[in-house]
Design a binder for these strands. Sequence first.
RNA 1: GCCCCUGUAGCUCAGCAGGAUAGAGCAACGGUUUCCUAAACCGUAGGUCGUGGGUUCGAGUCCCGCCAGGGGUACCA
Length: 603
Amino acid sequence: MSTQTSYVLDELRNEAEYPAYASGKSGLLKIQDAPKESEAIYAFPCFQYAKSLDKNPTQVAEELAQEWNKMRQSKEWPQEWFPTSVLDHFEASRGYVNVFVDQKTLLARILKDLLDYGEKYGSYPKLNKTMVVDYCSPNIAKPLSVGHLRSTIIGQALINILRVRGYRVVGINFMGDWGTQFGKLIYAFEQWGDEKKLESNPIQHLLELYVRFHKEAKENPALEDDARAAFKRLQQGGEKERALWQRFRESSLEAFEKTVARLGVKFDHNWFESDFEGKADELVDELLVKGIAEESEGAIIIRFEPLWPAESPEPPPAQPPLVIRKSDGTTLYPTRDLASAVERIERWQPVHKLLYVVASEQTLYFTQLWNTLEKMGYPDILRHINFGMVSLPTGKISTREGRIVYLDDLLDQAKERAAQIIKEKNPDMDEGSRSKVARQVGIGAVIYADLSQDRIKDIVFDWSKMLAFEGNSAPYLQYAAVRCAKILEKAKSEDREGLDTLNEQDIPALAEELKEPESVKLLMHLGRYPQAIAEAAERYAPHVLASYLYDLATALSRFYTEVPVLKAETDAARLARLTLVDATGLVLRRGLELLGIETPEEM
RNA sequence: GCCCCUGUAGCUCAGCAGGAUAGAGCAACGGUUUCCUAAACCGUAGGUCGUGGGUUCGAGUCCCGCCAGGGGUACCA
């Protein structure tokens, strides 16, 4: 147990857990959040503990509450660990020991945290641990589809969240620029390519060639051999192939960077699969020497142990092996990916976690990758941050068959739709602002639609859901943030000055002013922001943060309708409410920023 | 065949490590604008948590079977 933590609720939790720890009962008495309607903050269910004593839980809870309260008054309680304690007392209720705080003190402490941390509220101290995150990672020469959207925005949100949680994070975009598909493209371009089209709209043209190749190859399977031969020439450094491949690569990369920039995404590193071909080759030899890999049917493979030990009469299912060198002597994507994983581990050592934000379809592959690294003697650091598939109402996304929604089109539509709504809701907004706000709102809606739900779920692509502008959606959160900003903007200059010059002595008086249930709930919720960040980071779950922010926006909306700020009855009340609005706006803005969503200045 | 994931209100989803009365949004119905932006707020209605067992003081949550949907399953990436 740490003796002191920075945020009031972290500290309160530790303090509340103290008596359970001190008496060695923490295994049976676990802390949890108290129910929402309750005045209590935390609770200890005592049923399990009562069972172990063979006693009545209600009675046990009462005894514990009494005992802990007494302990708290005594010298046994390490008050020096909790110098600014907000814990008031323990209270038994139907088999639970509830943790009560002194609300005024707690509110004041939350205000103090907010003022102390300012813009940094919610962030944690440096942990000196490095996370290497693989995300986006598309194939060059294919346009980004909504399928890539998930990896990109989940990855970027995780990176942002992990950073404020205190991790050092390295984001890598690992691009597929190697493999037989480039043989296909080279062959197709030589057959049907058009110089002018490659010049004017490279991605589109390459896609046409790719689709055409597969169509023709259906009729004439010999084309597959031609493609393989072309790739072989590329590998051997054929000048013509090399030059063409470079052109594909450069033009694609350019178009592609433009698209992700629209999502506000910037990569720390752009790595290319092709750069690992040599290392991959060496790695295969090394794995052979170490006996980790073996030859089978002309290929080099790694075998894995069955999933569980064979004890039952039926043999356990074997895990499929991983092929790392084809029988023709060339490496595969997994080999190059493995080589790049080794490179990541060595370059940023010690790496705390190696994250891969990749669709669930790759689960087996990442299990194999994990097992291989383990065989190589690396610690258990690889985590597959998997997410469900995006499919279209008409079926699975397929570039080859043209069943695809392009990311650029999606973002264009989102913006257009947002612009229309702005025209209705806020007809006075000038053209320039409208365009900017439409971009922020439209793209925000798209990002939020994804991040507001658990990664693991499959998504059937649906325009109306993607572009939801009401209820639990990005615009709702943005709107709440805008309201905060507008109130502050309209506040008189002396009020704003009062805000800026607040100091610690003013805090108790401020807390005293916040009496309305809506104000209290809002401030209490602000107090939970650091825990939302911590949980989102721990579970690699941006939706935890998204749903926290939604609740915060709801608390703000209720506050807004019930409690006047600028027209508060007294100067003191106005100042207190302005402080609250200021802090809420800040948390909403910063929280949205972590998700990759911008906050407009007006809506 | 085998392995993995998912199944909660009409629809889309929350529900942390099993704990107090299962929560939101959308859609439906009704209400709120002399007052800081109604992209808002308030209310009504809507759930045998796929299904059958089991473990437990307690199961939406854990275990087993079944059903349904999705994904994967050696030289594609």
